[in-house]
Design a protein around this nucleic acid. Structure first.
Lengths: 260, 260
DNA sequence: AAGTGGTCTAGACCACTAG
DNA sequence: TAGTGGTCTAGACCACTTT
């Protein structure tokens, strides 16, 4: 009876009011939005569980079943993950190395891809990166130039742009001990050194042609067709914080989609 | 109390036993599989609703909430769709024209794509189609050659292969009044004339080069890069029934993916 | 008006994980 | 063993669609 949308009495002690705007929306939808907002605000981190579902239900004054539905919805949306017996956690992105799902060479299961960072330096954001990142035109940022290989064969060339005040924690890696501080994957480094948790991303695939530099690094002919993947990665609150452009030989490209 | 997995007493009248193998699986999972099997068997068609959730729950002797969860799972899996007040229906595929989501030309919202069927005839299945369709190497099938356009500009060339005993209902279209019997979309024709409901598909994207015939039809240069999409479409029981290969200029190609 | 799915509550019991 | 999520039940009431 408590916590119903049409409830007029003040909330019981320890209970919390939900947004009254959109009061027409079902309780579970308002609850979902309220929790999504708390997740976006980084109130919880991926390494510690949220309060138990029973505690959350009590906090908001809703039935356990309603809270379970809301948490399930947030799992489906990719914001949370639940571990039986352990708790409910904010989700950490796992698509860091996922570019390789597009490019076939060798046995994807058998051989682990590797990274070679060719260059790290401060530079002016190019317009194609400044736009998606919501940064000013002439802003300065950290620029990584990276090669990704499988079996010592170059598969992908990457340019990665990281807006600078925010990624200052990676700045000292500008020194020549290049591969020293960054491991195979970048997202764990973002989290450890800059407290930035990547939560979602958008990728756009197009086809282009190899320039002179691409041809050299990818060991292919100039003007050979390349598949270009541009990724904008975001934190939980939707702020874009990384933009990268990856290029690989179109002949190696193969993408499989399952529809409905 | 009734219908529990460990229930030893015989089912009450009007109640149905679920598979006893996998009796360790939760009730909702066994129920889901049972309903999925009935959907695959074409027991229900997209134009008439399934029995109401209350009837299904009674039939299997489970609580309403359990049946609701199962039906929700099947909606998520893309097998069913629910319409408030109207009922629960087997889902009809809606991705017939979805190739256009890859190719940009004109305003996708403003201009409707059109089809021009260039040829329909019986022919021997090529090996690349016979494999995915699970057909014998030399089998004969119906072959459609089709051009898809937007604003009178050719965007896609398609070769579509339909195994023949099954698609005999389209066979008389081999006569010269080509576009007569097939509309803009093929899947509604499959359903009306051959009783085949497409439910899911797999698409593989690669990059190739334009041959002489492609170049002519797509009005592009020979050897210009093309994006090649190969689709295997299946019925609800997973049987592959259509294989098509579509080609379009890589310069027009743009694919956007949202990750988690 | 009758019948359908959608929301919300309440509570019992089970299975898993961690300290 | 304490605490977490997972399963299942039971039933009240609401919102929508159809006839």
């Amino acid at each position: 009876m408590c916590g119903m949308a049409h409830e007029a009495t003040p909330p019981a002690p320890g209970r919390v009011e939900l947004e009254t705007r959109d009061a027409r929306l079902p309780l579970h939808a308002r609850l979902r939005d309220a929790l999504a907002a708390r997740i976006a605000s980084s109130e919880w981190t991926p390494d510690r569980p949220l309060p138990a579902e029973a505690a959350l239900a009590g906090h908001y004054g809703v039935a356990l079943g309603t809270m379970r539905r809301v948490l399930g919805d947030l799992v489906e949306l990719g914001l949370l993950e639940r571990r039986h017996g352990a708790g409910t956690f904010v989700r950490r992105a796992t698509f860091d190395a996922s570019l390789f799902r597009f490019f076939r060479y060798g046995d994807p299961q058998a051989t682990a891809p590797t990274s070679r960072i060719l260059d790290v330096r401060r530079a002016v954001l190019p317009p194609e990166a400044a736009g998606p990142l919501g940064e000013a035109a002439g802003a300065t940022a950290l620029h990584l130039h990276r090669l990704r290989l499988r079996d010592d064969r170059p598969l992908l060339v990457e340019d990665i742009w990281l807006p600078l005040p925010r990624f200052a924690g990676l700045d000292h890696l500008t020194e020549p001990h290049l591969d020293g501080g960054l491991g195979e994957l970048l997202y764990p480094a973002y989290e450890k050194r800059c407290d930035i948790v990547i939560a979602s991303a958008e990728e756009v695939l197009t086809v282009g042609a190899a320039g002179a530099a691409d041809a050299l690094l990818l060991r292919c002919a100039r003007y050979e067709p390349l598949v270009v993947v541009e990724r904008t990665a975001r934190t939980h609150d939707g702020t874009p914080v990384e933009w990268r452009r990856s290029r690989g030989r179109a002949a190696d490209f193969r993408y499989r989609i399952e529809i409905r």
